[in-house]
Structure formats: C-alpha cells, structure tokens
C-alpha cells in the first residue's frame, strides 16, 4: 500500500533548515525528488507557470511551507495557491512548518482548507516520516 512519493516541495528561506530536512529526506529515502524555493514568490511562480504548461510529473505531492519569509510570506502564498490548487486535479498535501508558536498563527493556518496540518519547528524526524508516509 505504500507508494513512495516522487516529488516533494519545500518553501523556506532558512538555508540551514532546508539543508537539514533535505538530509533527512535523502537518508530516509522519503521521496525521489525535491523542489526547493526560498520564498513564497518563487513557489507561487512555479505553480502558476506549471498550470500554464501542465506536466503531472512536475507537480509535487507534498508541500512544506514556512510562514515568515521575505518578499512573499507563507500567508500570501496560501492565498494565491488556494485559488489555483483545484485546477491541478491532483491531490497536493500542504503542511505549514513554522517556528511561530503564536496561537493565532496556528489557528489561522489550521482553519484553511488547503492546509493539512501545522508543524512547529523543530520538526522531528519521525514527524517528517509520518508526513511522507501518510501522503503516499
């Protein structure tokens, strides 16, 4: 029943964090390929372009999204992503991964239909495994 995830996506400006999560994903072989965007703008540009020239192979099944980022933060990404998400006709599971422990942020994120769950940094290795296994 476990079908391994082919493509996942991280949107986060913290290079060290991205590096470490990449290490975990590679070591645990949680997915085949990984897309990395350093802010919401890069991320949404990718998805909006993909919608124009659709290629199912390029569509990630999992997105790990940070909230606090320069240029375009996670909230604005979510706003724009929610508008186009259904046009892909393919399930995309999005997790917010943030160091914010602000209850308002957590509630707000969880209340959004496009958000599967809210993970507080530091994420644990088994949490990441669970995210990838549940989605697969």
């Amino acid at each position: 029943m476990n079908k391994k995830i082919k493509l996942a996506c991280i949107i986060d400006d913290d290079k060290i964090y991205v590096n470490l999560v990449r290490r975990i994903i590679e070591t645990k072989k949680l997915c085949d390929h990984l897309l990395i965007f350093k802010d919401g703008k890069e991320g949404i540009d990718y998805f909006e372009t993909l919608l124009q020239n659709f290629d199912k192979e390029q569509l990630p099944e999992v997105i790990l999204l940070d909230l606090n980022m320069p240029v375009m933060d996670g909230w604005e990404f979510l706003e724009r992503f929610t508008k186009i998400k259904n046009k892909f006709n393919s399930p995309i599971t999005l997790y917010v991964v943030s160091s914010s422990i602000n209850a308002i942020d957590i509630e707000k994120a969880k209340s959004l239909s496009s958000v599967q769950n809210y993970l507080i940094k530091p994420v644990k290795i088994d949490e990441l495994e669970a995210v990838f296994n549940k989605t697969a």
């Binding site: 913290d14 964090y17 470490l20 975990i24 070591t27 160091s99 940094k121 530091p122």
Partner: peptide, 26 residues
C-alpha cells in the same frame, strides 16, 4: 523569542540527525 527559536530549532534538528545517522563520516 522568535529569532532565537529558529536557531535553536535548527540545532535540535542537527542533534536529531547526528543521533539518527549511522556512520561517523555522516
């Protein structure tokens, strides 16, 4: 609290990885 948290959470992640990895080289 916010700015220190992001560093401390990275440190925690590193420690987790060190514990999890098998070889000394890694």
């Amino acid at each position: 609290s916010h700015n220190l948290r992001s560093h401390s959470s990275n440190l925690t992640l590193i420690v987790q990885l060190i514990n999890d990895l098998d070889t000394l080289q890694e």
